[in-house]
Design a protein around this nucleic acid. Structure first.
Length: 452
RNA sequence: GGCCCUAUCGUCUAAUGGUUAGGACACGGCCUUCUCAAGGCUGGAAUCGGGGUUCGACUCCCCGUAGGGUCACCA
């Protein structure tokens, strides 16, 4: 949907720094960003830190850091903080009290930790209908809200008052937030009307759900963006997945860059119902992005992981270069690299393999002599190849006919086992090429010796 | 419980009155050099129920049912 309005679009992302940025809020931030950019507008980032007890600077840092990592950029130079704007709230509050829109209330029933005197909103008790870009018209009877509290005192505003004033002062035209904000809307509209602020357009996006279909929270597992970052998800993959969770342009495209998302984003195509966060699909998307990158991007990571697991090792740089593509082919998220190495995969490129002689025997084969004969034959077939033309294609060409003749498993299995010591590994031709002629022949000979 | 929102394969979704209800992830099978990975092909799998409206409903309306959200001197 293109907005026809001549007023530039201003959206906002106003988290309260009371916890790490979680993926639900990150997605809301993304939708605000995409909508603003699609319409050539601006995104305002603001910290709602009126709750002094729970707001922590480290959480604010985490939120900023995650947004930067994801590539969601806001347009206000200074991050707005509610804690620095109290004078503004106070002046509005005074006007409201003076005009009778709000009043100082002596509390008859003071709850624990509560005050004897608070500022309450004078509820006009009306019916309010507002339009939601995703859901259509929504109607509420505000009577049931009563005269709700809008400030603890003239200097300490509560959330609803502060957001409305901030959104108004910052020229916010579109409020795009989680579905759990629907019931806050009538209260905020009431305050807008009391201070003479125009009503922004609303869009309530569906919630991200856990496997049990309830609002995603810590008990469902990882919810902090930071956790996904640490697990080795790429920011592009995260953005791509989050955008597709509850939105799609109606085509069959699955992989989107941020620019494509901005170009195609249509807020009216956001889903109405909640969506379960599915890490399997995120993994798949992450792999798609990994495939786009050259494996050289990950050589350093492979080296580090290797050294962490085997501090005494002095891995050959050239070998790391050669092995990294093999590892990346089997990697969906970056932490898989270390996981594979931990499981013992690929270390045979850096150390001698260890295995039992019986492991060399192909299934059903009980005769060690046959296996030794096959291995000897492999050596003699490899001998004519010189060190430089020791490539997987040439090795395969040299051995293939013989292997086919006596049974591929009978030749290829012991060959692969002698080179890797593993039941699972890349194929023996790749192994041979990477190991080089000298090392390959040496390992084959070691295996033959084991068999006698 | 009051108020509000929602309802297509297991999951994410397409189809805005006429489709053999499409795609992706996951899962099964087959192929591709012995194992793994990658790749290719292929299979199973859905319109919550009941009423309407209509020549014709996934699609529109009503009622159920189910799920979710929200009910602070938190945000």
């Amino acid at each position: 949907m293109e907005t026809k309005s001549t007023i530039p679009v201003v959206t906002r992302f106003p988290p309260s720094p009371t916890g790490f940025l979680h993926i639900g809020r990150a997605r809301t931030a993304l939708f605000n960003y995409l909508f603003a950019k699609h319409n050539g507008g601006k995104l305002v980032f603001r910290l709602e830190d009126t709750d002094k007890e729970r707001s922590k600077p480290e959480y604010a840092e985490n939120i900023v850091e995650c947004l930067n990592w994801l590539g969601i950029a806001w347009d206000n130079k200074e991050v707005a903080k509610q804690s620095e704007r109290s004078a503004i709230y106070t002046s509005y509050l005074k006007k409201m009290v003076d005009s009778g829109k709000a009043y100082v209330s002596k509390e008859t029933e003071v709850k624990e930790g509560g005050r004897a005197e608070v500022i309450r909103f004078k509820n006009p008790n009306i019916k309010i209908t507002f339009h939601d870009l995703i859901r259509g018209d929504i109607q509420f009877d505000t009577t049931e809200l009563g005269d709700f509290v809008i400030a603890k005192d003239m200097n300490e505003p509560l959330y609803h008052l502060a957001v409305v004033i901030d959104d108004f002062e910052m020229g916010v035209t579109h409020v795009i937030r989680g579905e759990d904000g629907i019931s806050n809307t009538p209260r905020q509209i009431l305050i807008q009307e009391a201070i003479g602020a125009p009503r922004p357009l609303y869009a309530h996006v569906p919630l991200i759900l856990g496997a049990d279909r309830s609002k995603l929270s810590g008990r469902h597992g990882a919810v902090a963006v930071t956790e996904y970052r640490n697990k080795g998800y790429l920011p592009e993959a995260m953005i791509n997945y989050l955008a597709l969770l509850g939105w799609n342009p109606g085509t069959e495209q699955e992989i989107f860059s941020m620019d494509e998302l901005i170009r195609d984003f249509d807020i009216t195509k956001i889903q109405k119902s909640g969506a379960i966060f599915n890490e399997e699909k995120l993994r798949w998307i992450n792999k798609e992005y990994l495939k786009k990158r050259p494996s050289s991007d990950f050589e350093e990571l492979v080296k580090q992981s290797l050294l962490e697991l085997h501090p005494q090792l002095k891995p050959d740089e050239k070998m790391i270069k050669k092995v990294t593509p093999l590892i990346m082919e089997r990697t969906e998220i970056l932490s898989d690299i270390k996981k594979q190495l931990e499981a013992g995969d690929f270390i045979y490129f850096f150390t001698q393999p260890s295995y039992e002689a019986s492991a060399l025997l192909w299934k059903g084969q009980a005769d060690k002599t046959t296996t030794a004969t096959n291995l000897n034959k492999v050596i003699s077939l490899m001998e004519p190849l010189d060190e430089v033309s020791f490539t997987q294609e040439k090795i395969k060409a040299a051995i293939w006919d013989y292997a086919t003749e006596v049974g591929r498993g009978e030749v290829l299995w012991p060959m692969r086992m002698s080179l890797s010591g593993k039941e699972r590994s890349p194929d023996p031709f790749v192994l041979s090429e990477l190991l080089g002629k000298t090392e390959t022949l040496k390992r084959l000979q070691t295996a033959i010796n084991k068999l006698s």
